[in-house]
Amino acid sequence: MSVSIAAIGMDDSLKIYASVGIKVVIVNDVSEVDKKIFSLSKDGCKIIYVTDHIYKNISEVLEKYAYKAYPIILPLPLDNKNEGIGMKKIEANVEKAIGINIFG
């Protein structure tokens, strides 16, 4: 089964990702992200990269897909603004799993 990858962000600097076959979705407001993720997931999109800014504002949406294997929603500094959300997520996972952050 062939599937696609998508990237969701809020400005057009994301368009570069279209050059490697990643579907770029640009939203004007964080509230649109839920619908976009739903429609992307319905279209068979299995990996969705979102910008750090969007990721920290969509906790309810993430909760919805947390227990499913797909789609995989990941924070990445796609728009040149690295807020360190990804690293914090790794540290939170380590703390959740072993009770102490060994990378901190």
Binding site: I5, I16, Y17, S19, V20, I47, Y49, A66, Y67, A69, I72, L74, L76, G86, K89, I90, N93, V94, K96, A97, I98
Partner: peptide, 27 residues
């Protein structure tokens, strides 16, 4: 540079999701 990253991007997605699910299950 982006093209050379694609494999790693996919691997990161797979590993990070596995880590998320494992962390919840371990807890």
């Amino acid at each position: 540079e982006l093209t050379s990253l694609t494999n790693k991007l996919v691997e990161l997605a797979q590993i990070e999701k596995s880590c998320d699910m494992l962390a919840v299950e371990i807890e």
